[in-house]
Design a binder for these strands. Structure first.
Length: 319
DNA sequence: TACGCGTGGGA
DNA sequence: TTCCCAAGCGT
């Protein structure tokens, strides 16, 4: 949960998750939809699918015994070198380095690294430095300490060098370049995409599709969508072709912007009243798309499924 | 190597 | 409003 996500954001999700899945066995036995339901809103949903798979793998391949070597840990989906290091150090008190965002910043400043930290060569250099600094004794304390140093004193903006125990030996501080480190390669502006979300409404129910396991909102449930702004003629043809639904009018809801890590999505929700439920859903004939499971979802009697934030938002916007 | 992958908070 | 980026990983 903490990968690329701040502690304060994670806490309520963590509490609910641990209440529902207090141990490996309960998580391994859960339905994926149930896991994604508890993850919904947190983002990066591959983490949830990977965690679920990892629990199953530990139960089956590792006979319920949590692995405690870098090789075994990194063989689990969703656990890379840094997460493996954190588990080894914090859970098992084994000597292992980590390199998360906080540690990168601390090391880049302490050693005065002026090359972009998001370049491969610099990253390799930082891993070497992390390895050198990692002590044999009190590894859990050290690991927590260097992360907390980055989170509390050696912050991105307004670092509190005067309170830092490493100030005297900090290269960036000595050179007066703390504020400009770490250097990052410029990222280009996010592209803007537009989509019409089709809210097929029947009584109190809305048609949702399970999305493919890869790509945005993988394995979560969402409305059918059409690229571009609402166009009633396109909506009519799409509804007929994909769902055998005949539509006569539609009611636009207020559009809004949702921003992903790599693009903006301007969403135009459109309510489309439907009289008859299509008993046999038409196959998704779109390119490369398998037949997608569909449900009529009643927001007033919600089921434990993973719904992306904008889908939740649209359901709340419904009259 | 570069990119895909969510969401929310702070500046 | 917009930008940055946060306990990274997989492909």
């Amino acid at each position: 949960m903490l990968q690329q996500t701040q502690v304060n954001t994670v806490i309520p999700y963590y509490e609910r998750f641990m209440q529902q899945f207090p141990d490996l066995r309960s998580l391994a036995q859960a339905q994926e939809d149930e896991v994604l339901h508890l993850w919904a809103g947190l983002g990066y949903y591959s983490r949830a699918r990977n965690l679920h798979r990892a629990a199953k793998t530990i139960m089956e391949k590792f006979k319920g015994q949590f692995p405690d070597t870098p090789l075994a840990l990194e063989s689990l989906p969703g656990i890379g070198q840094s997460t493996a290091g954190a588990i080894l150090a914090l859970a098992f008190h084994h000597r292992a380095p980590i390199l998360d965002g906080n540690v990168k910043r601390v090391l880049a400043r302490f050693h005065g690294i002026t090359t972009p930290v998001n370049e491969k060569s610099t990253e390799s250099q930082l891993w070497e430095l992390a390895e050198k600094h990692t002590p044999a004794k009190r590894i859990a304390d050290y690991t927590q300490a260097i992360m907390d140093l980055g989170a509390t004193l050696c912050t991105r903006s307004k670092p509190q060098c005067g309170r830092c125990p490493l100030m005297k030996n900090c290269s960036a501080h000595q050179q007066g370049i703390v504020d400009v480190l770490p250097i990052k390669k410029a990222v280009r502006a996010l592209p803007v995409r537009t989509a019409t979300f089709l809210v097929f409404k029947q009584d109190n129910c809305v048609l949702l599709q399970k999305r493919p396991p890869t790509g945005i909102w993988g394995s979560l449930w969402s409305m059918p969508e059409i690229e571009g702004k609402p166009d009633f003629e396109r909506i009519r043809r799409f509804s007929q072709r994909q769902f055998k639904l005949t539509t006569f009018h539609h009611q636009p809801l207020e559009s809004f912007r949702h921003t992903f890590s790599h693009y903006h999505l301007d969403i135009f929700p459109v309510i489309i009243p439907v009289k008859k439920i299509a008993t046999k859903a038409a196959r998704a004939r779109q390119q490369g798309m398998e037949e997608m499971p569909q449900i009529w979802y009643n927001p007033h009697q919600p089921e434990p499924l993973g719904l992306p934030k904008p889908v939740e938002r649209i359901l709340r916007m419904m009259p």
